[in-house]
Design a protein around this nucleic acid. Sequence first.
DNA 1: TAAAAAGTATGATATTTGTCATTGTAAAAT
DNA 2: ATTTTACAATGACAAATATCATACTTTTTA
Lengths: 234, 234
Amino acid sequence: MQSATEMSKCEQCIVRKFSSLKSLDKSELISISECKTSQQIEKGSFLFEEGDHLNGVYCIKSGICKLTKLASNGKSHIVKFIKKGDLLGQRSIVSDDAVGLSATAIETMEVCFIPKSEILSVFKNNANFSADIINDICYDLKLANEHIVQMAQKPVKSRFASSLLSLYEEFGVDKEGFLKISLSREEFANIVGTATESMIRMISDFSKKELIETEGKKIKLLNNVKLGLLAEDL
Amino acid sequence: MQSATEMSKCEQCIVRKFSSLKSLDKSELISISECKTSQQIEKGSFLFEEGDHLNGVYCIKSGICKLTKLASNGKSHIVKFIKKGDLLGQRSIVSDDAVGLSATAIETMEVCFIPKSEILSVFKNNANFSADIINDICYDLKLANEHIVQMAQKPVKSRFASSLLSLYEEFGVDKEGFLKISLSREEFANIVGTATESMIRMISDFSKKELIETEGKKIKLLNNVKLGLLAEDL
DNA sequence: TAAAAAGTATGATATTTGTCATTGTAAAAT
DNA sequence: ATTTTACAATGACAAATATCATACTTTTTA
C-alpha cells in the first residue's frame, strides 16, 4: 500500500502520457491510485515468468525489461523490450490464461501493479480506454507479424542490422553516441536468433567494416544508412 | 444489399458460433444484418492488400484465405490462414491505419462485410463484445510470439514438421486421410521461410522416411508422433 | 490438341550458420 | 589480492540451407 501523498500521483505519472491510461478521467484515476501497489524489480530478476497467471496490469515507471520465451530446445529468445511508459499484461484484463512470456529486468525497474478487478471496471465503462487497449495490442500484433517475416526470410546479418536500428530508435544514445541500452553478446544472439559465437563474429565483422564501434558492451552505430540497406537484404 | 430473407440470417450464421459475434444480442444482430454486404471472392484473388485501408470487418462464411506479407527482398511470407467462422480486420474498428497483410483466397470464399460505423457502435455499447475482440487479438499475439521464436530458433525441418501438424489441427483430413488444405510447394516454402527447392527436397525426404505420403499436391501425415519430435527439435 | 506456362524434381556447388575446442579477459566473490 | 566465474574472441570443422542450371510433369491457354 501507498502513503496518501504517493497515492495521488497517478494523475501526473509518466506512464499516463504514453499508454492507454491517457483515456482515463479524474475519478477513474483516483480509484486506480487507491488500489495500486508499487514495487521495485532489481536488475536480473523476474517481473513474471512464462506460465504465471497475472491478476492485473503493470505500469512501467522506470527501467527496462526484456520479454523472453523459452523454445522447446532450451534456447531462450528475446521477443520484445518494455520500457518507461509501457503497460504490461493487458491480456489479463479479459483472460485468465497463463502469460506466454517471461519479463526480466535488465535495468532496475519501478513498476505499479493495478489489480484486474479495478481495471476491468474501468474497461467496461470507458469505451475509449478499451479502444486504446485494442489499438495497442493490434499494433504489437502488426510488429510481431513483421518480426515473423523478418526471422523467416532474412539472413542473420540483416536481422542484426535491423535490431541495432530498432534499439537505436527505441532507446536512443548517450552523450558519446553509444546505444543507451547495453546487452551481452548472448542477449544480442537471443534477439536475432543465432549462436552466441556467430553473434560475436558478426559484431567483429561489423566493427571492421566500420558499421559500428564497440567499447566493452557498449555499441555505437556509425552508418545507419548502410545498416538500413543491410537490414533490407538488398 | 441483401433481400429480407437473407438479412435475417445473421442470427443463424456459422460465423457467430466461433467468433466474438457470439456476444451480440438479438437487436445488435438485426442492425448488423441490415447494413452488412456479402461478396464472393474467387480462388486466387485478393480480399484486401497490404497498405489498403479497411473500413470494417469481414466475417468468413466459407472458404480459406492466406494472410501474407511481402518482405523487402521481394519474398512473400504466409503468416496465417483464415477460415470459416473467423473475423478479419478487427483493428479497423479502432484504427484508420493501413493493414499490414494481404488476404488472398486459396479456396473460393463467401464473406460478409460489416462497416466500421456499425460495429463501432456495438463495440461501445457491449463490453463483452469488446472483451472478446481483445481476447481474440491477444491470442493471435500469443501465437505470433511463438511463431517468432520458432522461426528464429528452429531449423527448417522442425518448422516444416510443425507447420504440417498445425495444418492438420486447423483443417483436418479428408476421407482418405489427406490434409483438407492443399498448397503448392512454393506456398509451403513461404510458410516455413525457405527456398522452394529446399522445400521440395524436404518433402521428398519426409516421404522417404515415411513421415508423410504425397499424391500430387495432397499430403497425408503418417506419423504425427515423429513429426512432433521433429517439430520440437530434440 | 498443340503450345505455353506453371509447377515439380534433381544435381552440383557455394554460402551461411552452427558446433566444439581452446584461449584470453574482465568482473565478482572470497 | 587472488581465485572463481562469467563473458568474449578465435580457429577448425561440420551441418544446414541457398543458388543456379537443367530436365521433367502437369496444368492452362490459345
